[in-house]
């Protein structure tokens, strides 16, 4: 399809992002990540590798953590997406966001939104309880600054709180 007039037309897409409904037109080749960042100016979800190898783009799709860089936007029709911008309740930070600050679980901050979204899902998956399980469960999110120890500490602290208040789940 290298003919100039063959670039496929935009197609309609409806999805909910952080509780807000969006009716959009997207080219099929647009990833969810580029839709969020370039079209909707939700730049909290980061592009670290664009190939599912770093986790910086992690968002919640219908409550499950996924790599937005390997998700075609058009395939999310009807879905509920939660990004880092949708975690705080107005000005009140999510317990994980607070724990990340308290434990200095980031430095440059670029992997942080993905780490936090990933940890929110980790809590709702309900499988990671021990330190080793948290470490394995957070290994899909690279941190080049090397904040891993503090990330684990933050997650360890916030997990019980999230499970108790069911804040691990998706926000439609």
């Amino acid at each position: 399809m290298s003919d100039s007039d063959c670039i496929p037309a935009h197609q309609p897409l409806e999805l909910s992002i952080n509780g807000q409904r969006h009716q959009l037109q997207v080219a099929p080749w647009m990833t969810l990540l580029d839709l969020l960042r370039d079209q909707l100016d939700l730049t909290g979800s980061k592009k670290g590798c664009d190939h599912g190898q770093c986790g910086a783009c992690t968002v919640l799709r219908n409550g499950q953590r996924v790599n937005a860089c390997l998700t075609l936007a058009i395939m999310c029709d009807g879905d509920c997406i939660t990004t880092i911008e949708g975690l705080a309740d107005d000005e009140r930070l999510h317990p994980l966001q607070q724990a990340f600050i308290r434990h200095d679980a980031f430095q440059c901050g670029y992997c942080t939104p993905g780490q936090i979204c990933s940890a929110v899902a980790l809590a709702s998956e309900g499988r990671a309880l021990s330190r080793a399980e948290i470490q394995e469960g957070m290994s899909g999110n690279l941190c080049r600054c090397g904040a891993y120890g503090n990330i684990v500490a933050a997650v360890e602290e916030a997990l019980p709180q999230m499970i108790a208040s069911d804040q691990g789940g998706p926000r439609a």
Binding site: I84, A88, L93, Q97, P113
Partner: peptide, 8 residues
């Protein structure tokens, strides 16, 4: 910190 953990 707040700017970094909220994606702002």
């Amino acid at each position: 910190g707040p700017a970094k953990v909220t994606g702002k």
